[in-house]
Write a protein that binds this DNA or RNA. Sequence first.
DNA 1: CTGTGTGAAGCGATTCACAGCG
DNA 2: CGCTGTGAATCGCTTCACACAG
Lengths: 258, 258
Amino acid sequence: MATGRTHRPATRSRGIPEATVARLPLYLRALTGLSERSVPTVSSEELAAAAGVNSAKLRKDFSYLGSYGTRGVGYDVEYLVYQISRELGLTQDWPVVIVGIGNLGAALANYGGFASRGFRVAALIDADPAMAGKPVAGIPVQHSDDLERIISDNGVSIGVIATPAGAAQPVCDRLVAAGVTSILNFAPTVLSVPDGVDVRKVDLSIELQILAFHEQRKAGEESAAAHDGAVPESVGHDVVAHDTDQGPDGDVPAVMPA
Amino acid sequence: MATGRTHRPATRSRGIPEATVARLPLYLRALTGLSERSVPTVSSEELAAAAGVNSAKLRKDFSYLGSYGTRGVGYDVEYLVYQISRELGLTQDWPVVIVGIGNLGAALANYGGFASRGFRVAALIDADPAMAGKPVAGIPVQHSDDLERIISDNGVSIGVIATPAGAAQPVCDRLVAAGVTSILNFAPTVLSVPDGVDVRKVDLSIELQILAFHEQRKAGEESAAAHDGAVPESVGHDVVAHDTDQGPDGDVPAVMPA
DNA sequence: CTGTGTGAAGCGATTCACAGCG
DNA sequence: CGCTGTGAATCGCTTCACACAG
Protein backbone atom coordinates (compact mmCIF):
# COMPACT_ATOMS: atom_id res chain seq x y z
CA MET A 1 0.00 0.00 0.00
CA ALA A 2 2.87 2.25 -0.60
CA THR A 3 0.60 4.40 -2.58
CA GLY A 4 2.72 6.38 -4.84
CA ARG A 5 1.79 9.93 -4.35
CA THR A 6 3.14 12.56 -6.53
CA HIS A 7 3.20 15.47 -4.27
CA ARG A 8 3.85 18.35 -6.45
CA PRO A 9 4.78 21.91 -5.51
CA ALA A 10 1.10 22.48 -5.84
CA THR A 11 -0.11 24.64 -8.60
CA ARG A 12 2.55 27.26 -8.64
CA SER A 13 0.71 30.41 -7.69
CA ARG A 14 -2.58 28.83 -6.61
CA GLY A 15 -0.89 27.07 -3.72
CA ILE A 16 -3.36 27.53 -0.91
CA PRO A 17 -2.43 25.58 2.23
CA GLU A 18 -4.83 22.82 3.12
CA ALA A 19 -5.33 24.28 6.58
CA THR A 20 -6.42 27.53 4.99
CA VAL A 21 -8.85 25.80 2.66
CA ALA A 22 -10.42 24.11 5.66
CA ARG A 23 -11.08 27.50 7.24
CA LEU A 24 -12.49 29.26 4.21
CA PRO A 25 -15.97 27.76 4.74
CA LEU A 26 -15.82 29.10 8.27
CA TYR A 27 -15.06 32.61 7.11
CA LEU A 28 -17.69 32.32 4.46
CA ARG A 29 -20.33 31.45 7.00
CA ALA A 30 -19.38 34.35 9.24
CA LEU A 31 -19.37 36.70 6.27
CA THR A 32 -22.76 35.49 5.12
CA GLY A 33 -24.12 36.34 8.53
CA LEU A 34 -22.68 39.84 8.32
CA SER A 35 -23.97 40.20 4.81
CA GLU A 36 -27.49 39.37 5.90
CA ARG A 37 -27.28 42.06 8.50
CA SER A 38 -26.07 44.43 5.81
CA VAL A 39 -22.72 45.09 7.44
CA PRO A 40 -20.59 46.67 4.71
CA THR A 41 -17.08 46.06 6.01
CA VAL A 42 -15.27 44.13 8.74
CA SER A 43 -11.81 44.25 10.22
CA SER A 44 -9.76 41.10 10.47
CA GLU A 45 -10.20 41.29 14.21
CA GLU A 46 -14.00 41.31 14.06
CA LEU A 47 -14.28 38.66 11.41
CA ALA A 48 -11.78 36.46 13.20
CA ALA A 49 -13.83 36.65 16.38
CA ALA A 50 -16.98 35.72 14.48
CA ALA A 51 -15.27 32.77 12.88
CA GLY A 52 -13.55 31.64 16.04
CA VAL A 53 -9.94 32.02 14.92
CA ASN A 54 -7.28 34.60 15.65
CA SER A 55 -6.82 37.61 13.44
CA ALA A 56 -3.25 36.97 12.39
CA LYS A 57 -4.23 33.60 11.05
CA LEU A 58 -7.16 35.07 9.20
CA ARG A 59 -5.06 37.76 7.57
CA LYS A 60 -2.48 35.21 6.55
CA ASP A 61 -5.20 33.01 5.11
CA PHE A 62 -6.62 35.86 3.07
CA SER A 63 -3.17 36.80 1.86
CA TYR A 64 -3.11 33.50 -0.03
CA LEU A 65 -6.19 34.54 -1.93
CA GLY A 66 -4.92 37.96 -2.81
CA SER A 67 -5.07 41.46 -1.38
CA TYR A 68 -8.77 41.90 -0.92
CA GLY A 69 -8.67 44.24 2.04
CA THR A 70 -8.20 47.97 2.45
CA ARG A 71 -5.52 49.03 4.87
CA GLY A 72 -6.80 51.10 7.71
CA VAL A 73 -10.35 50.00 6.95
CA GLY A 74 -10.91 46.28 6.65
CA TYR A 75 -12.60 43.99 4.16
CA ASP A 76 -15.63 44.60 2.02
CA VAL A 77 -18.08 41.93 3.08
CA GLU A 78 -19.84 41.34 -0.22
CA TYR A 79 -16.65 41.29 -2.20
CA LEU A 80 -15.04 38.84 0.16
CA VAL A 81 -18.09 36.57 0.10
CA TYR A 82 -17.77 36.43 -3.64
CA GLN A 83 -14.03 35.83 -3.69
CA ILE A 84 -14.16 33.04 -1.16
CA SER A 85 -17.14 31.42 -2.85
CA ARG A 86 -15.32 31.47 -6.11
CA GLU A 87 -12.16 30.08 -4.59
CA LEU A 88 -14.09 27.22 -3.04
CA GLY A 89 -15.85 26.53 -6.29
CA LEU A 90 -19.26 27.38 -4.88
CA THR A 91 -20.25 29.63 -7.71
CA GLN A 92 -21.03 26.55 -9.69
CA ASP A 93 -23.64 23.90 -9.13
CA TRP A 94 -22.53 20.64 -7.53
CA PRO A 95 -24.97 17.79 -7.93
CA VAL A 96 -24.56 15.37 -5.03
CA VAL A 97 -25.94 11.91 -4.41
CA ILE A 98 -26.55 10.48 -0.99
CA VAL A 99 -26.31 6.72 -0.71
CA GLY A 100 -27.92 5.02 2.26
CA ILE A 101 -31.15 6.65 3.33
CA GLY A 102 -31.40 5.61 6.94
CA ASN A 103 -31.76 8.06 9.79
CA LEU A 104 -28.56 9.79 8.88
CA GLY A 105 -29.14 9.84 5.15
CA ALA A 106 -32.54 11.38 5.76
CA ALA A 107 -31.01 13.97 8.06
CA LEU A 108 -28.52 14.87 5.37
CA ALA A 109 -31.21 15.05 2.71
CA ASN A 110 -33.13 17.46 4.89
CA TYR A 111 -30.13 19.55 5.79
CA GLY A 112 -30.63 23.03 4.43
CA GLY A 113 -26.97 23.96 4.52
CA PHE A 114 -26.43 22.10 1.30
CA ALA A 115 -28.70 23.90 -1.07
CA SER A 116 -27.64 27.27 0.20
CA ARG A 117 -24.06 26.70 -0.86
CA GLY A 118 -24.15 25.45 -4.39
CA PHE A 119 -24.81 21.85 -3.50
CA ARG A 120 -27.87 20.19 -4.92
CA VAL A 121 -29.09 16.81 -3.82
CA ALA A 122 -29.48 15.21 -7.22
CA ALA A 123 -30.59 11.85 -5.92
CA LEU A 124 -31.12 9.65 -2.91
CA ILE A 125 -30.13 6.03 -3.28
CA ASP A 126 -30.84 3.05 -1.08
CA ALA A 127 -30.45 -0.69 -1.40
CA ASP A 128 -33.80 -1.44 0.19
CA PRO A 129 -36.45 -2.05 -2.51
CA ALA A 130 -39.10 -1.02 -0.01
CA MET A 131 -37.64 2.47 0.09
CA ALA A 132 -37.77 2.94 -3.66
CA GLY A 133 -40.13 5.67 -4.69
CA LYS A 134 -40.70 6.82 -1.16
CA PRO A 135 -39.97 10.52 -0.95
CA VAL A 136 -37.50 11.83 1.61
CA ALA A 137 -37.10 15.57 1.89
CA GLY A 138 -39.26 15.79 -1.22
CA ILE A 139 -36.94 13.63 -3.27
CA PRO A 140 -37.94 10.11 -4.24
CA VAL A 141 -35.51 7.43 -3.15
CA GLN A 142 -34.11 5.35 -5.98
CA HIS A 143 -32.86 1.82 -5.84
CA SER A 144 -29.13 1.23 -5.87
CA ASP A 145 -29.38 -0.93 -8.96
CA ASP A 146 -29.59 2.31 -10.87
CA LEU A 147 -26.62 3.93 -9.16
CA GLU A 148 -24.38 4.04 -12.22
CA ARG A 149 -27.07 5.49 -14.44
CA ILE A 150 -28.01 8.10 -11.87
CA ILE A 151 -24.41 9.23 -11.47
CA SER A 152 -23.83 9.58 -15.15
CA ASP A 153 -27.21 11.08 -16.03
CA ASN A 154 -26.71 13.82 -13.49
CA GLY A 155 -23.01 14.36 -13.97
CA VAL A 156 -22.39 13.75 -10.30
CA SER A 157 -18.83 14.01 -9.06
CA ILE A 158 -19.47 14.18 -5.32
CA GLY A 159 -21.02 11.30 -3.42
CA VAL A 160 -22.04 10.98 0.20
CA ILE A 161 -21.96 7.54 1.81
CA ALA A 162 -24.31 7.09 4.76
CA THR A 163 -24.68 3.34 4.61
CA PRO A 164 -23.83 0.80 7.32
CA ALA A 165 -20.12 0.05 7.54
CA GLY A 166 -20.29 -3.18 5.59
CA ALA A 167 -21.80 -1.58 2.53
CA ALA A 168 -19.48 1.39 2.39
CA GLN A 169 -16.57 -0.04 0.40
CA PRO A 170 -18.71 -1.73 -2.27
CA VAL A 171 -20.78 1.42 -2.65
CA CYS A 172 -17.61 3.47 -2.80
CA ASP A 173 -16.19 1.25 -5.54
CA ARG A 174 -19.33 1.62 -7.60
CA LEU A 175 -19.44 5.37 -7.13
CA VAL A 176 -15.83 5.70 -8.21
CA ALA A 177 -16.28 3.39 -11.17
CA ALA A 178 -19.25 5.48 -12.22
CA GLY A 179 -17.21 8.65 -12.18
CA VAL A 180 -17.43 10.11 -8.70
CA THR A 181 -14.13 11.68 -7.64
CA SER A 182 -14.97 13.11 -4.23
CA ILE A 183 -16.54 11.18 -1.39
CA LEU A 184 -17.81 12.21 1.99
CA ASN A 185 -17.91 9.08 4.11
CA PHE A 186 -20.05 8.74 7.21
CA ALA A 187 -19.57 5.01 7.61
CA PRO A 188 -17.00 3.95 10.19
CA THR A 189 -14.65 2.39 7.69
CA VAL A 190 -11.40 3.27 6.01
CA LEU A 191 -12.17 3.45 2.32
CA SER A 192 -9.72 2.42 -0.35
CA VAL A 193 -9.85 4.56 -3.43
CA PRO A 194 -7.61 5.06 -6.42
CA ASP A 195 -5.36 8.07 -6.69
CA GLY A 196 -7.19 11.12 -7.80
CA VAL A 197 -10.22 10.40 -5.67
CA ASP A 198 -10.64 12.52 -2.61
CA VAL A 199 -12.17 11.11 0.53
CA ARG A 200 -13.16 12.90 3.69
CA LYS A 201 -14.78 11.17 6.57
CA VAL A 202 -16.97 12.20 9.41
CA ASP A 203 -17.00 9.89 12.35
CA LEU A 204 -19.10 10.62 15.38
CA SER A 205 -17.69 7.99 17.65
CA ILE A 206 -14.17 9.20 17.02
CA GLU A 207 -15.12 12.72 18.02
CA LEU A 208 -16.65 11.45 21.22
CA GLN A 209 -13.57 9.42 22.01
CA ILE A 210 -11.37 12.46 21.62
CA LEU A 211 -13.63 14.36 23.97
CA ALA A 212 -13.50 11.49 26.43
CA PHE A 213 -9.72 11.60 26.41
CA HIS A 214 -9.69 15.27 27.39
CA GLU A 215 -12.52 14.80 29.81
CA GLN A 216 -10.62 12.08 31.57
CA ARG A 217 -7.58 14.28 31.80
CA LYS A 218 -9.59 17.11 33.28
CA ALA A 219 -10.85 14.80 35.98
CA GLY A 220 -7.30 13.72 36.67
CA GLU A 221 -5.92 17.24 36.95
CA GLU A 222 -8.77 18.22 39.17
CA SER A 223 -7.66 15.88 41.90
CA ALA A 224 -4.03 16.61 41.20
CA ALA A 225 -4.79 20.31 41.55
CA ALA A 226 -6.33 19.76 44.95
CA HIS A 227 -2.92 18.51 45.84
CA ASP A 228 -1.08 21.76 45.53
CA GLY A 229 -3.91 23.52 47.21
CA ALA A 230 -5.40 25.06 44.13
CA VAL A 231 -8.87 26.45 44.00
CA PRO A 232 -11.64 23.86 43.79
CA GLU A 233 -14.03 24.63 40.98
CA SER A 234 -13.25 28.20 40.18
CA VAL A 235 -11.01 29.86 37.72
CA GLY A 236 -7.78 28.33 38.89
CA HIS A 237 -5.36 27.85 36.09
CA ASP A 238 -6.76 27.07 32.75
CA VAL A 239 -7.73 23.50 32.47
CA VAL A 240 -7.32 21.79 29.19
CA ALA A 241 -9.13 24.30 27.08
CA HIS A 242 -7.21 23.67 23.92
CA ASP A 243 -8.29 25.76 21.05
CA THR A 244 -11.33 25.06 19.11
CA ASP A 245 -9.53 24.57 15.87
CA GLN A 246 -9.63 20.83 15.60
CA GLY A 247 -10.90 20.83 12.12
CA PRO A 248 -7.99 21.15 9.77
CA ASP A 249 -6.78 18.44 7.61
CA GLY A 250 -7.94 17.20 4.42
CA ASP A 251 -6.33 15.33 1.79
CA VAL A 252 -4.92 16.40 -1.38
CA PRO A 253 -5.85 14.67 -4.53
CA ALA A 254 -2.93 14.22 -6.81
CA VAL A 255 -4.39 13.61 -10.13
CA MET A 256 -2.37 13.16 -13.21
CA PRO A 257 1.22 12.13 -13.24
CA ALA A 258 3.71 14.90 -12.93
CA MET B 1 -13.67 37.56 21.73
CA ALA B 2 -15.46 34.36 21.58
CA THR B 3 -13.86 31.39 23.10
CA GLY B 4 -11.02 31.77 25.43
CA ARG B 5 -7.95 30.04 24.22
CA THR B 6 -4.96 29.49 26.53
CA HIS B 7 -3.23 26.62 25.10
CA ARG B 8 -1.12 24.89 27.62
CA PRO B 9 2.04 22.97 26.77
CA ALA B 10 0.53 20.00 28.49
CA THR B 11 2.33 18.29 31.26
CA ARG B 12 5.56 16.72 30.14
CA SER B 13 4.80 13.25 31.35
CA ARG B 14 1.29 12.83 30.03
CA GLY B 15 2.15 14.81 26.91
CA ILE B 16 0.45 12.97 24.12
CA PRO B 17 0.29 15.13 20.98
CA GLU B 18 -3.20 16.15 19.98
CA ALA B 19 -2.68 14.70 16.53
CA THR B 20 -1.87 11.37 18.09
CA VAL B 21 -4.93 11.44 20.31
CA ALA B 22 -7.06 12.03 17.25
CA ARG B 23 -5.71 8.87 15.66
CA LEU B 24 -6.03 6.56 18.64
CA PRO B 25 -9.73 5.92 17.97
CA LEU B 26 -8.76 4.93 14.45
CA TYR B 27 -6.25 2.39 15.67
CA LEU B 28 -8.72 1.17 18.21
CA ARG B 29 -11.31 0.50 15.56
CA ALA B 30 -8.85 -1.39 13.39
CA LEU B 31 -7.69 -3.39 16.38
CA THR B 32 -11.23 -4.23 17.38
CA GLY B 33 -11.78 -5.65 13.94
CA LEU B 34 -8.67 -7.80 14.24
CA SER B 35 -9.69 -8.86 17.70
CA GLU B 36 -13.05 -10.04 16.46
CA ARG B 37 -11.30 -12.16 13.90
CA SER B 38 -9.10 -13.53 16.65
CA VAL B 39 -5.89 -12.23 15.17
CA PRO B 40 -3.33 -12.44 17.99
CA THR B 41 -0.68 -9.98 16.82
CA VAL B 42 -0.11 -7.36 14.15
CA SER B 43 2.89 -5.54 12.82
CA SER B 44 2.93 -1.78 12.61
CA GLU B 45 2.79 -2.14 8.86
CA GLU B 46 -0.39 -4.20 8.86
CA LEU B 47 -2.16 -2.19 11.47
CA ALA B 48 -1.20 1.04 9.76
CA ALA B 49 -2.70 -0.21 6.53
CA ALA B 50 -5.93 -1.17 8.28
CA ALA B 51 -6.15 2.23 9.91
CA GLY B 52 -5.21 4.13 6.80
CA VAL B 53 -2.02 5.77 8.07
CA ASN B 54 1.63 5.09 7.45
CA SER B 55 3.57 2.80 9.72
CA ALA B 56 6.20 5.27 10.89
CA LYS B 57 3.48 7.54 12.15
CA LEU B 58 1.76 4.69 13.92
CA ARG B 59 4.91 3.56 15.64
CA LYS B 60 5.65 7.09 16.72
CA ASP B 61 2.13 7.43 18.06
CA PHE B 62 2.43 4.24 20.07
CA SER B 63 5.77 5.32 21.42
CA TYR B 64 3.97 8.10 23.29
CA LEU B 65 1.89 5.53 25.10
CA GLY B 66 4.78 3.31 26.03
CA SER B 67 6.57 0.31 24.62
CA TYR B 68 3.76 -2.08 24.03
CA GLY B 69 5.22 -3.96 21.10
CA THR B 70 7.66 -6.82 20.75
CA ARG B 71 10.57 -6.24 18.40
CA GLY B 72 10.72 -8.62 15.57
CA VAL B 73 7.11 -9.63 16.17
CA GLY B 74 4.64 -6.81 16.42
CA TYR B 75 1.88 -5.83 18.82
CA ASP B 76 -0.41 -8.03 20.86
CA VAL B 77 -3.88 -7.10 19.67
CA GLU B 78 -5.80 -7.62 22.90
CA TYR B 79 -3.23 -5.89 25.01
CA LEU B 80 -3.12 -2.91 22.69
CA VAL B 81 -6.91 -2.67 22.61
CA TYR B 82 -6.86 -2.44 26.36
CA GLN B 83 -4.05 0.09 26.55
CA ILE B 84 -5.59 2.41 24.00
CA SER B 85 -9.03 2.12 25.55
CA ARG B 86 -7.60 3.02 28.89
CA GLU B 87 -5.64 5.93 27.48
CA LEU B 88 -8.76 7.30 25.83
CA GLY B 89 -10.74 6.86 29.00
CA LEU B 90 -13.08 4.32 27.47
CA THR B 91 -12.80 1.84 30.28
CA GLN B 92 -15.20 3.99 32.20
CA ASP B 93 -18.81 4.80 31.52
CA TRP B 94 -19.59 8.15 29.90
CA PRO B 95 -23.22 9.19 30.15
CA VAL B 96 -24.07 11.46 27.22
CA VAL B 97 -27.09 13.60 26.48
CA ILE B 98 -28.24 14.50 23.01
CA VAL B 99 -30.07 17.79 22.69
CA GLY B 100 -32.21 18.37 19.63
CA ILE B 101 -33.99 15.26 18.44
CA GLY B 102 -34.62 16.03 14.83
CA ASN B 103 -33.48 13.83 11.98
CA LEU B 104 -29.88 14.12 13.01
CA GLY B 105 -30.49 13.71 16.72
CA ALA B 106 -32.50 10.58 16.02
CA ALA B 107 -29.73 9.23 13.83
CA LEU B 108 -27.26 9.81 16.62
CA ALA B 109 -29.53 8.19 19.18
CA ASN B 110 -29.76 5.13 16.98
CA TYR B 111 -26.07 4.93 16.36
CA GLY B 112 -24.72 1.72 17.79
CA GLY B 113 -21.15 2.94 17.98
CA PHE B 114 -21.98 4.63 21.26
CA ALA B 115 -22.66 1.77 23.58
CA SER B 116 -19.83 -0.28 22.22
CA ARG B 117 -17.29 2.28 23.31
CA GLY B 118 -18.19 3.24 26.82
CA PHE B 119 -20.69 5.89 25.83
CA ARG B 120 -24.21 5.61 27.08
CA VAL B 121 -27.04 7.79 25.87
CA ALA B 122 -28.38 8.90 29.22
CA ALA B 123 -31.08 11.12 27.81
CA LEU B 124 -32.60 12.69 24.74
CA ILE B 125 -33.74 16.27 25.09
CA ASP B 126 -35.87 18.39 22.80
CA ALA B 127 -37.59 21.74 23.09
CA ASP B 128 -40.73 20.56 21.34
CA PRO B 129 -43.40 19.62 23.89
CA ALA B 130 -44.96 17.34 21.32
CA MET B 131 -41.85 15.19 21.35
CA ALA B 132 -41.86 14.70 25.10
CA GLY B 133 -42.39 11.12 26.10
CA LYS B 134 -42.08 9.88 22.57
CA PRO B 135 -39.46 7.15 22.43
CA VAL B 136 -36.58 7.42 20.00
CA ALA B 137 -34.21 4.50 19.81
CA GLY B 138 -36.01 3.13 22.82
CA ILE B 139 -35.32 6.18 24.93
CA PRO B 140 -38.12 8.58 25.80
CA VAL B 141 -37.49 12.17 24.76
CA GLN B 142 -37.57 14.64 27.63
CA HIS B 143 -38.44 18.29 27.47
CA SER B 144 -35.65 20.82 27.65
CA ASP B 145 -37.18 22.47 30.69
CA ASP B 146 -35.66 19.62 32.65
CA LEU B 147 -32.21 19.90 31.08
CA GLU B 148 -30.40 21.00 34.23
CA ARG B 149 -31.96 18.31 36.36
CA ILE B 150 -31.22 15.61 33.80
CA ILE B 151 -27.56 16.62 33.57
CA SER B 152 -27.06 16.63 37.28
CA ASP B 153 -29.10 13.52 38.03
CA ASN B 154 -27.09 11.53 35.56
CA GLY B 155 -23.71 13.08 36.22
CA VAL B 156 -23.38 13.95 32.55
CA SER B 157 -20.20 15.68 31.46
CA ILE B 158 -20.48 15.23 27.70
CA GLY B 159 -23.25 16.81 25.68
CA VAL B 160 -24.12 16.54 22.01
CA ILE B 161 -25.86 19.47 20.35
CA ALA B 162 -27.95 18.61 17.31
CA THR B 163 -30.31 21.56 17.40
CA PRO B 164 -30.91 24.18 14.72
CA ALA B 165 -28.20 26.85 14.62
CA GLY B 166 -30.18 29.42 16.51
CA ALA B 167 -30.70 27.25 19.54
CA ALA B 168 -27.15 26.02 19.80
CA GLN B 169 -25.56 28.78 21.88
CA PRO B 170 -28.39 29.00 24.43
CA VAL B 171 -28.41 25.23 24.79
CA CYS B 172 -24.64 25.25 25.10
CA ASP B 173 -24.79 27.86 27.85
CA ARG B 174 -27.30 25.83 29.80
CA LEU B 175 -25.32 22.62 29.39
CA VAL B 176 -22.16 24.30 30.62
CA ALA B 177 -23.93 25.97 33.52
CA ALA B 178 -25.33 22.58 34.49
CA GLY B 179 -21.89 21.04 34.58
CA VAL B 180 -21.13 19.72 31.10
CA THR B 181 -17.47 20.21 30.21
CA SER B 182 -17.25 18.59 26.78
CA ILE B 183 -19.48 19.38 23.86
CA LEU B 184 -19.84 17.87 20.43
CA ASN B 185 -21.54 20.43 18.24
CA PHE B 186 -23.38 19.59 15.04
CA ALA B 187 -25.01 22.97 14.65
CA PRO B 188 -23.37 25.29 12.12
CA THR B 189 -22.35 27.86 14.71
CA VAL B 190 -19.21 28.90 16.53
CA LEU B 191 -19.92 28.28 20.19
CA SER B 192 -18.52 30.45 22.95
CA VAL B 193 -17.59 28.55 26.05
CA PRO B 194 -15.56 29.33 29.15
CA ASP B 195 -12.05 28.02 29.59
CA GLY B 196 -11.96 24.45 30.67
CA VAL B 197 -14.80 23.43 28.40
CA ASP B 198 -13.86 21.45 25.36
CA VAL B 199 -15.78 21.83 22.12
CA ARG B 200 -15.49 19.83 18.96
CA LYS B 201 -17.64 20.42 15.96
CA VAL B 202 -18.82 18.40 13.06
CA ASP B 203 -20.02 20.40 10.14
CA LEU B 204 -21.45 18.68 7.14
CA SER B 205 -21.52 21.61 4.81
CA ILE B 206 -17.92 22.52 5.58
CA GLU B 207 -16.76 19.07 4.62
CA LEU B 208 -18.59 19.32 1.34
CA GLN B 209 -17.12 22.72 0.64
CA ILE B 210 -13.62 21.39 1.15
CA LEU B 211 -14.37 18.59 -1.28
CA ALA B 212 -15.73 21.09 -3.75
CA PHE B 213 -12.52 23.06 -3.59
CA HIS B 214 -10.46 20.04 -4.54
CA GLU B 215 -13.00 18.91 -7.06
CA GLN B 216 -12.82 22.25 -8.78
CA ARG B 217 -9.08 22.06 -8.90
CA LYS B 218 -9.16 18.59 -10.39
CA ALA B 219 -11.41 19.82 -13.15
CA GLY B 220 -8.98 22.58 -13.86
CA GLU B 221 -5.95 20.33 -14.02
CA GLU B 222 -7.81 17.81 -16.07
CA SER B 223 -8.00 20.12 -19.01
CA ALA B 224 -4.50 21.34 -18.42
CA ALA B 225 -3.08 17.84 -18.48
CA ALA B 226 -4.28 15.03 -20.61
CA HIS B 227 -7.43 13.41 -19.40
CA ASP B 228 -7.37 9.73 -18.74
CA GLY B 229 -4.42 7.64 -19.59
CA ALA B 230 -3.22 8.72 -16.23
CA VAL B 231 -1.25 6.61 -13.85
CA PRO B 232 -1.26 2.93 -14.68
CA GLU B 233 -1.95 1.77 -11.16
CA SER B 234 -4.99 3.83 -10.57
CA VAL B 235 -7.64 1.48 -11.71
CA GLY B 236 -8.88 -1.01 -9.18
CA HIS B 237 -9.15 0.10 -5.64
CA ASP B 238 -5.57 0.47 -4.83
CA VAL B 239 -5.05 2.03 -1.56
CA VAL B 240 -5.96 4.97 0.43
CA ALA B 241 -3.76 7.25 -1.52
CA HIS B 242 -3.38 10.51 0.34
CA ASP B 243 -2.92 11.09 3.98
CA THR B 244 -6.15 10.07 5.45
CA ASP B 245 -5.75 12.22 8.43
CA GLN B 246 -8.11 15.08 7.96
CA GLY B 247 -8.37 15.42 11.66
CA PRO B 248 -11.74 14.74 13.06
CA ASP B 249 -14.48 12.63 11.88
CA GLY B 250 -17.58 11.26 13.20
CA ASP B 251 -19.93 8.92 11.66
CA VAL B 252 -23.35 7.81 12.20
CA PRO B 253 -24.54 4.98 10.18
CA ALA B 254 -28.10 4.44 10.97
CA VAL B 255 -30.14 1.36 11.09
CA MET B 256 -31.47 0.38 7.77
CA PRO B 257 -31.52 -2.60 5.54
CA ALA B 258 -28.88 -2.72 2.92
C1' DC C 1 -3.06 56.75 13.01
C1' DT C 2 -5.49 52.37 11.81
C1' DG C 3 -5.55 47.92 10.22
C1' DT C 4 -3.73 45.11 6.26
C1' DG C 5 -0.16 42.29 4.32
C1' DT C 6 3.92 39.67 5.07
C1' DG C 7 8.91 38.27 6.10
C1' DA C 8 10.74 35.76 9.69
C1' DA C 9 10.72 33.22 13.88
C1' DG C 10 8.64 29.58 16.44
C1' DC C 11 6.50 25.07 16.98
C1' DG C 12 4.32 20.91 16.41
C1' DA C 13 3.74 17.06 13.50
C1' DT C 14 5.51 13.94 9.97
C1' DT C 15 9.00 11.40 7.91
C1' DC C 16 13.44 9.42 7.66
C1' DA C 17 16.69 6.14 8.79
C1' DC C 18 18.85 3.19 11.70
C1' DA C 19 20.27 1.34 16.38
C1' DG C 20 19.21 -2.46 18.82
C1' DC C 21 16.00 -5.93 21.02
C1' DG C 22 14.01 -10.47 20.54
C1' DC D 1 17.41 -11.20 10.46
C1' DG D 2 12.55 -8.61 11.18
C1' DC D 3 10.28 -5.14 13.30
C1' DT D 4 9.99 -1.92 17.04
C1' DG D 5 11.31 2.36 19.06
C1' DT D 6 13.32 6.83 18.47
C1' DG D 7 16.79 10.70 17.62
C1' DA D 8 17.36 13.80 13.88
C1' DA D 9 15.90 16.09 9.72
C1' DT D 10 12.08 18.14 7.54
C1' DC D 11 7.86 20.08 6.52
C1' DG D 12 3.97 22.99 7.13
C1' DC D 13 1.23 25.82 9.99
C1' DT D 14 0.87 29.40 13.37
C1' DT D 15 2.30 33.45 15.55
C1' DC D 16 4.92 37.53 15.89
C1' DA D 17 5.94 42.08 14.80
C1' DC D 18 6.26 45.75 11.92
C1' DA D 19 6.61 48.20 7.34
C1' DC D 20 3.53 50.63 4.86
C1' DA D 21 -0.88 51.75 2.33
C1' DG D 22 -5.00 54.42 2.81
